[in-house]
Computed example of a mutant assay.
Amino acid sequence: MLPKELLTDFLSVALYLLVGVVFAVVPIILSMLIVKRSTGKMREATYESGMETIGTAWMQFTVAYYIYALIFLAFDVDVLYLFPVALAYGKYAIRDLVEIFIFVGILSLAIVYAWCKGVFEWKPREE
């Protein structure tokens, strides 16, 4: 038999899990029940800003766009990390500042690496 405290902990985790699943599943079921589904040729047409599309929607992009987006995402997350770190300076402010400089230095190495690999050089696509 499990101790009462452990059983209470398991029940609270199970309750949180159940509430999370309910909050995820109920809106999906409600939208299936409430929304009227449409069918037809216009339903499957590509819609872009109210203008008729020219050509196919399936086109290839160069990998540079993907790498550029990943670099942007990485730096965006890192800036979000730096704000709370900067606000949490304690009595070891110099040490914290050095740690931030080391962190930003490592990020700068990633930019230099991407620059050396030519990620930031945009070449027109050859068709």
Results as ranks from 00 to 15, higher is better:
P3S: 08
K4F: 15
E5P: 06
L7R: 12
D9I: 10
F10M: 12
L11A: 07
L11C: 08
V25H: 03
I28Q: 08
I29S: 04
L30C: 06
S31L: 14
M32T: 15
M32S: 11
M32F: 15
L33G: 04
V35K: 07
R37D: 11
S38D: 14
T39N: 08
T39Q: 08
G40S: 01
Y47T: 12
G50H: 02
E52S: 07
I54R: 12
G55I: 02
A57H: 15
A57P: 13
M59P: 05
T62H: 11
V63Y: 12
V63C: 05
A64L: 10
A64F: 09
A69K: 11
L70F: 12
L73A: 08
F75G: 01
F75Q: 02
D76W: 15
V77Q: 14
V77A: 14
Y81K: 06
V85M: 09
Y89W: 15
Y89T: 12
Y89F: 14
A93D: 06
L97I: 13
E99P: 03
F101M: 04
F103A: 01
L107P: 02
L107D: 01
L107Y: 01
A110L: 14
V112E: 05
V112M: 06
W115D: 09
W115Y: 11
C116L: 10
V119C: 01
W122Q: 07
W122V: 11
E126H: 10
